[in-house]
Simulated scan of single mutants.
Amino acid sequence: MKPMFTLSNYAQLKALSDPLRAEIMIRLIEKSYTGQQLSEIFGLSRAKIHYHLKELEKNELIEIVKKEEKNGIIQKFYRSVARGFTPSSQLLPQIGDVSETSRQLLLQLNDRTRNAILSASEHAFQLEQASEEPSNWSYVGATWHFSAKEEHFKKWIKKYHSLMKEFSEMTKNDQPDEPDSKMYYLSTMAFQVEEPLIEELKSEKEE
C-alpha cells in the first residue's frame, strides 16, 4: 500500500466525497475486507456494498489483494491502494468538491478513532506512575490551538510526516507476538478553524 495516492480526475474526487464510500475507504485502509464482510459491518445489502466497491475499484482507489474459495464461492478481498489521498493541481478549480471529500474522510476517521477508544481495554489508559514527563505516559490525548502563518503550519506538517516515517522505520521489525511488543493506534487531525475554540487563546487575542 502506498503512503499517498494523487487523485488525478474528477470522477475519483466524486467517488470519495460520498459519505458511505468515505467510511468504506477508512475500513479498507485499515485492513482488507470482502463485500460480504462489509455488508455485515454496515448492515446493508451485498448488492449495495458491491455497487460502491465497484465504483471505488473503477476509479482505482481500491484493489483486490487476494481471493479465497469458501463453500464453492470465490471471495474477493479489497484493500485501499494508499493510506492517504491528495488532489492533483488540475482538480483545485473544483475546490468545493475537494473540501467536501477531505471533510468526509476526516469525519469517518474521527468516528473510527472514537470506536477504537471505546473498544480499547482499561489497561490502555492506566498510568504506571504520575509524571509530567511525556515519555512516561502510556497514551496521548491533547487538543492544541495555534494562531500561525500558513508557511509555519506547512513546515510542521512536513516535520510530522518525517517523524512518522522515522517511527515506521524504527518499528518495522517489531512483531505483535513478541513479549514486549504492544499494538498502538495513532490518529492525528489538524485543520484551519475560523476562530479560537479555547478560551485562553481567545483572551490572548483580545489583549
Rank of each mutant, 00 (worst) to 15 (best):
L107Y: 00
L107D: 02
Q108R: 11
Q108G: 00
L109W: 01
L109S: 12
L109H: 04
L109N: 05
N110H: 13
N110E: 07
D111F: 08
D111R: 08
D111G: 02
R112Q: 06
R112V: 00
R112M: 02
R112C: 00
T113D: 06
T113Y: 01
T113V: 02
T113G: 00
R114G: 04
R114I: 06
R114D: 04
R114L: 09
N115E: 08
N115Q: 10
N115A: 13
N115P: 01
A116P: 04
A116M: 07
A116S: 11
I117T: 02
I117E: 01
I117A: 02
L118Y: 07
L118Q: 05
S119N: 10
S119E: 15
S119V: 03
A120N: 01
A120D: 04
S121D: 13
S121Y: 03
S121K: 06
S121R: 14
E122I: 04
E122S: 08
E122Y: 08
H123Q: 09
H123C: 03
H123V: 07
H123I: 15
A124G: 01
A124C: 07
F125I: 08
F125C: 02
Q126A: 08
Q126L: 11
Q126E: 13
Q126C: 14
Q126W: 06
Q126S: 11
Q126Y: 13
L127I: 05
L127P: 02
E128P: 07
E128L: 15
E128D: 11
Q129R: 14
Q129Y: 09
Q129A: 15
Q129N: 09
A130V: 10
A130K: 13
A130H: 09
A130D: 11
S131H: 05
S131E: 00
S131C: 06
S131R: 10
S131M: 04
E132R: 03
E133A: 12
E133T: 10
E133M: 13
E133K: 09
P134N: 12
P134S: 15
P134M: 10
S135Y: 05
S135G: 03
S135L: 15
W137P: 05
W137K: 15
S138G: 15
S138L: 06
S138W: 06
S138N: 14
V140A: 11
V140C: 12
V140Q: 13
G141Q: 09
A142G: 12
A142N: 12
A142S: 15
A142L: 14
T143G: 09
W144N: 13
W144V: 15
W144C: 06
W144E: 06
